[in-house]
Design a protein around this nucleic acid. Structure first.
Lengths: 160, 160
DNA sequence: GCTCATTTGTCCGTATGTATC
DNA sequence: TGATACATACGGACAAATGAG
């Protein structure tokens, strides 16, 4: 029953390897970017997971990609971090700090609620909470329990 | 190690699909009702989560069920979800008040715990809490924090 | 707003049986 | 026989979303 596909001189997993490398060369996939999920690749190449994983393993071995479980596979190598979504919290914190610096939020003004930020930034509560903590640690904001988080006074902000 | 189970002509996930469809046909599961959790189904069918999820995916694809993360899967289709949301707190309150009036619970006797009621009435804690609040408001019961909810004295009860 | 538990989503590694070439 | 490929199945781990308290 298996082996629906006619024999090819070159194994399917090799085709998938080439396809992904092609996407990278063509700029379709950039360093640090997330590859499609294994399931996605199965569908796209009409191959079994077994085959897709074999292709991914080859790409891992030659350093073309790296995999973080269970997040997925990324264009690598890992030690050359790129577009990589740093930690999401880090990224949101930087973005909010920038807005504070630009005066979008004034000292002692309330920052948007967690839920609002989740909505607006399209991320998780956890990331937002992490970002808030970073802002506090760095002097950008302070939190009043049960009330909200507010912009700190300018003299608390990090220098430049 | 895996594949403890002897080869069957029909895959396990297909059996699970049929079992669930059977429950729906037999009225055991009604539209809008919540399916058991994936873990539950694993236990019940002695299958791995992988296998259970494959079954659920098939049911999702043919529109038999829909899934809302992380609430669970429901008998579908989604645009006709009804029966669920249990019955409102109002109804449970009425039912408990009736039992009190009939003497099933005597004044100063403890009412069943939230968990017991959740179990017995097949609803959510939220509904039970809502019912308890209504009972308090109407003079049927009083709550001692951290202890429980008790039947109020007869002279506090609403007239007829 | 916060913490925690529950549940689903995804991925990982492994294993087995079968079919083709 | 061995390489390729597929379908099935188990188990564990972490991520993300949501609701309860």
């Amino acid at each position: 029953m298996p082996r629906t596909r006619p024999r090819t001189p070159v194994p399917i997993y090799a085709l998938i390897v080439d396809a992904i490398k092609g996407d990278i060369d063509s700029g379709n996939l950039r360093p640090g970017q997330k590859l499609p999920t294994e399931q996605e690749l199965c569908d796209r190449h009409q191959a079994s997971r077994d085959t897709v994983r074999r292709a991914l393993e080859i790409l891992r071995e030659d350093g073309t990609i790296y995999t973080r479980r269970p997040e997925g596979s990324f264009v690598g190598p890992e030690d050359a971090p790129q577009i990589r979504e740093a930690r999401p919290a880090e990224q949101f914190a930087a973005s909010l700090a920038e807005e504070i610096r630009r005066g979008v939020y004034q000292p002692d003004e309330a920052l948007p609620s967690e839920n609002e930020l989740v909505e607006r930034l399209g991320t998780s509560k956890k990331s937002i909470r992490g970002a808030m903590e970073l802002l506090r640690e760095r002097g950008w904001a302070y939190t009043v329990p049960k009330i909200g988080t507010f912009v700190a006074a300018r003299d608390k902000w990090p220098a430049a």
